[in-house]
Amino acid sequence: MTALRIGSRRSNLAMTQTGHVADALRAAGHDVEIVEITTEGDVNRAPLSTLGGTGVFASALRQALRDGRVDVAVHSLKDLPTAPEPDLAIAAVPARVDPRDALVARDGLTLGELPAGSVIGTGSPRRRAMLASLGLGLDFQDIRGNVETRLAMVGEQVDAVVLAAAGLRRVDLDGVVTEFLDPLQILPAPGQGALAVEVRADDAETLGAVGALDHADTRAATTAERALLARLEAGCSAPVGALAEVVEDDKGPALSLRAAVADPAGDREIRRSATGPLEDPAGLGRTLAETLLADGAGDIVADASHDPVPAPNSSSSESDT
C-alpha cells in the first residue's frame, strides 16, 4: 500500500488527535501522510447555531475523501452528522477518552462554588441548557475559538468555560480543570470523547488497514448514543446529552444508556435511561429515544431548533471533541 493520506483540520487539537491515529497506523506498519484541510467551521465566525451545527466541521473533510485528495478523514465523532453517507464508511472508532465535560473557572472554583450571576462561556446549546437547568443562577456568554483561546478568556471575559475533558487531555491541558462535571449532572454530547476514522466505502484496502483501530465497546456505546440522536431528529448542536457504557448484568455484558433533553432556558429537562443487549446498540438508542419522545422531548428539540439561544459574542470556531 502507498502512503495513507489522512485529512485533518488545522487546529492544534485536531492535528493532535489525527496524530494519534497516524501513530497507531504507523505502529501497524503503514506509511502515513497528514493533509491539512480547512472546514467551514474554521473560517466562518457565525455562531454554530446559525451555521446549522451539524456537519460544519466535517463536510470539507468528507469532500476531500470523495475527491481523492485524502484516503482517511479523522473527525470528532460528536461533530459528525448521524445521517448515513452511502459512499463513505466509519472504518474505526478508536477507544474513547474521558467523555465528560470539564469546568475551568477563575480562582480554582468548582461549579457549586461559583456565585450566582457568574458568567459561563460556552458555544454549546446543550451545555448551556443543562447548566441552566441546575438552577444555580448562572449567566452565559456564547464563545467560540480554539481551546487555548477559550481558556484565555477565563478571568478576563468570563468567570468560567466548559469544554470537553477529552480535548483538554489530548493536548495536555487537563491540569487547568477545576472540576470534571459528573454525567449525573451534565450528560455529554452523543459521541463526545470519541473519534471517527472515515474512509471511502469502496476502498477495501484502506478499510482493512483502518479497521484494526476499531474499539468494540466504544463503537457499541457511541452507536447507541448516535441512534438516539438520529431518532430524535436532533443535530450535534441540539440540547441533547447521552452516554452509554458497557456494564455487567445477570446475563453478561450489556449496554446501559442514559439520555437527557433540556430546553435552552433550562426550564425543563427530561432524563431517561435504559439497558439493552450489547449486540444491538442502535436498537437500544432508538428505544430510549421513543421513551423520550413519548414524554415530550420532541417539543423541546423542535423549540430549540426554531429559537436558538442568542449568541451575541461569537468568535472564531473550534470543536473541542
Rank of each mutant, 00 (worst) to 15 (best):
V176T: 03
A189W: 04
A194G: 12
A212W: 07
L184S: 10
I270D: 07
Q192Y: 08
V197I: 14
P253H: 09
G252C: 15
L288C: 14
L187M: 02
V199T: 15
D250A: 13
L213T: 03
A227N: 07
G211V: 01
T222G: 09
V240N: 01
A209C: 09
A244V: 03
A260H: 03
E205G: 08
A227F: 06
A201W: 11
L232Q: 03
R200G: 13
L229D: 07
T178Q: 04
E205P: 06
S256C: 10
P190S: 10
R231H: 03
A265V: 15
V177L: 15
G193S: 14
V199H: 14
L173P: 01
Q185H: 06
A212C: 06
V177I: 15
I186Y: 10
T291M: 12
P183L: 02
G175H: 13
R258D: 15
T218I: 09
I186D: 11
P277K: 00
G285A: 13
A282F: 09
G191K: 00
E205V: 11
G285E: 10
P277R: 02
T223W: 07
C236Q: 05
A204H: 11
G266T: 01
E198P: 02
V210H: 07
I186N: 13
D250E: 14
A254S: 14
T291Q: 15
E279M: 10
T218R: 15
L184I: 09
P281L: 00
A274K: 01
G208D: 09
R219Y: 12
V210I: 12
E248C: 11
P264M: 03
R272W: 02
F180D: 05
D280T: 13
I270P: 06
Q192E: 15
D217Y: 08
A216R: 14
A282Y: 14
A196C: 11
E248I: 11
V210W: 11
E198V: 15
A204Q: 15
D267H: 11
L229I: 07
A234H: 01
A220W: 07
G241L: 05
P190F: 12
D214Y: 11
A259I: 12
D202N: 14
L229Y: 05
V176C: 05
T218F: 14
A242D: 10
V197W: 13
T223N: 07
A274F: 04
H215K: 14
L184Y: 06
L284H: 03
D249I: 05
Q185F: 02
V246Q: 04
G208S: 12
G208E: 12
D174Y: 01
L257Q: 01
T275Y: 10
R286V: 00
A262D: 06
L243I: 07
L243K: 01
L278K: 05
T178H: 05
R271H: 10
A227G: 08
G285R: 09
L184A: 12
A201T: 12
E179C: 07
V177K: 13
D217F: 12
V199Q: 09
